[in-house]
Design a protein around this nucleic acid. Structure first.
Lengths: 106, 106
DNA sequence: TATATTAGCAAACAAACGGTTGCATATTTT
DNA sequence: AAAATATGCAACCGTTTGTTTGCTAATATA
């Protein structure tokens, strides 16, 4: 059973849940109200998010609040880093091409 | 059949392929040599990457070169943007707490 | 105490995924 | 022209995914 951050954000419902609880913790029922699926389906998504540590739970009486572990999102950012370099380099390359044109023109 | 960027990068082999062809275009055979799976399996991954426009093909005789569409990676970056704000805010919040401590201390 | 609410767990199921095998097609090379 | 090479396509298969339904446990409320 693969369970990493990338697998977790692959599902659109899960991404929506992440966006929803990003700013404030919510209970499964409250989250489920925002979707067309059942509470159990949402619960399973939450379970997956907890398993890969993107979300943490906090019991409060009979309610369980789910909150985003924002720091974990940085893992995705970290992977993107290598490509960010490339797309910036492509940008610089264009700059170089333009300056070459300028240089060869006169 | 879901086919978006997030679904595409969910698979570890696919992420490895992306990393491999990021700097220079490669043929399916050349790519497959880097993995334990068969050429056909790699081909299927490439097909998915093409479908979601993360990768583009360029025929050259009987060979087909696959190259990363770096710009498309920005879509992931764009989604991360909203959370980047939050994790920076959390950082600033810590700053505020610290400065409050400093202020109340003396 | 009896009842309602919140939530996790287990079973069942169709659809999608990742992979293999076999075959067809197009381009080189001999 | 014949053989080799590069690739895509289709069928098949076991596993995983996302969902629903039915149940149980714990907490709050009447």
């Amino acid at each position: 059973m693969r369970r990493d951050v990338f697998q977790a954000i692959a599902d659109p419902t899960r991404r929506a849940i992440i966006g929803l609880i990003a700013l404030q913790a919510m209970t499964p029922n409250a989250i489920a109200e925002h979707f067309d699926t059942s509470r159990q389906a949402v619960s399973k998504h939450l379970q997956i998010l907890v398993e890969c540590q993107l979300v943490k739970q906090e019991q409060q009486g009979r309610e369980i609040y789910y909150q985003l572990e924002v720091a974990k999102m940085k893992e995705i950012d970290k992977w993107l880093e290598q490509f960010r370099k490339i797309w910036e380099d492509r940008f610089n390359q264009l700059d170089t091409i333009f300056s070459n044109i300028k240089q060869t023109k006169p």
